[in-house]
Amino acid sequence: MSKLFLSEPETPKTAIGVLLLNLGTPTAPTAQAVRPYLREFLSDQRVVELPHFLWQMILRGIILPVRGRKSAHAYSSIWQDNGSPLLIGTQALTTALAKIMPKGVITRFAMTYGQPSVANVLQEMKQQGVQYLLVLPLYPQYASSSSGAALDQVWRVMLRQRVQMAVRSITSFHADNNYIQTLASHIQTYWQKHGRGQYLLLSYHGIPQAQHLAGDEYVEHCTTTTRLLVAELGLKESEYRQAFQSRFGYAPWVGPSTQDLLVQLPQAGISSLDIVCPGFVTDCLETLEEINIRGRADFLAHGGKQFQYIPCLNSEHEWVEVLAPLIRQHLHGWQ
């Protein structure tokens, strides 16, 4: 028997599967655990679009030894007693969603990088009888380096299945009306409890300018989400700003830069700032450490007086109630 394809075990009754995909996380906040995770993540040519051989020399010789230590320190500042916030949050969301899915729908999650891997989870789902699969990357706005990279992992597994699942995917939900309304309500609820700052900064994960110029629709998706969200919130143009965080390397990235604005806004008279990250649905390193720890410190160090980070939707009931109809819509005809 050829080893090119996975052997197919006998399966129980045909089932429908829903697979949620998130980025991934190291298994521990240590350099030893962070380096293999970063190596897998940064070796993906969807993420870093440079010649493979040249990039691997830079990655293994320079970046991993230095960034591994720095990232481990960052992870240690947000690590919870029961593990990574991203893993815990994604698991909680999946569990909550599974409870309200129609009978016969198996709901699981996997990580693009790290564990639980897409390959292992799909194998488990196949053994449970899943022959119809809906895949949802947990990124509202599509980017080749996030949603595209996540879906690539699924297609790689499909290439090795002798009897392939039928697969559908939800590539983005950046303009979904229920998502926009729920996020707006989430922000308003936060303001009711904690008060409202002078200015709202909407910070999205950035991408290199070269990827944007090559045709990636991510910036347009982010701009659409911002336009719809601020309209729902009733904000004036002078009360908010869209920006992009997480710059890496020396090549130009799309802007304006969140990091730059956190320094500039106090100098422009903004003393109290609220910040939300609509490109993330689960709190993670980029929101908890980059924004709520380092971003807060930068803003306050340059003259800001009050900094409020508005958490992600995570596994809130209202958010789960948004995902359920979105998924049911894409399951139409399979049930």
Rank of each mutant, 00 (worst) to 15 (best):
Q192V: 01
P140N: 12
L213T: 07
S203R: 08
P137I: 02
N177L: 12
V219M: 12
K236R: 13
Q329F: 02
Q45T: 15
F307G: 05
E289P: 00
T171S: 13
W191N: 09
N82E: 11
F173P: 04
C277D: 09
F244E: 02
V154G: 02
C222H: 11
K13P: 10
L133S: 13
G129Q: 11
H194N: 13
A184W: 10
R162I: 04
R168V: 03
Q127I: 04
P85N: 05
Y199W: 06
G195D: 08
L285K: 00
E286F: 10
R108G: 09
N292E: 08
R69E: 03
L273R: 11
I187Q: 11
T94N: 08
G249F: 12
S2F: 07
A150G: 00
Y190T: 05
L134Q: 06
P9H: 04
Y37G: 10
S272Y: 02
S76Q: 07
R227E: 15
P116V: 06
T112V: 01
G255T: 12
Q127V: 08
T27E: 15
V154H: 01
T25R: 01
A243D: 15
Q192E: 13
A175G: 02
D274R: 10
L201K: 07
Q115V: 04
K70F: 00
K13I: 15
I16R: 14
E49K: 12
P116H: 12
V320Q: 11
T27Q: 12
L87V: 05
S246N: 01
E286G: 04
L64I: 07
S84R: 09
L19I: 07
P12C: 03
Q91F: 05
G249N: 05
I16N: 08
H302G: 06
T27F: 01
Q127C: 09
H174V: 08
S257L: 02
Y204Q: 08
R227D: 14
L313P: 05
T189M: 10
L201T: 03
Q115W: 00
V254S: 12
N82S: 09
V121G: 02
G83D: 09
G89K: 09
Y75T: 09
G114D: 11
V18N: 06
S185G: 15
Q131G: 08
A166E: 12
S185C: 14
A297V: 07
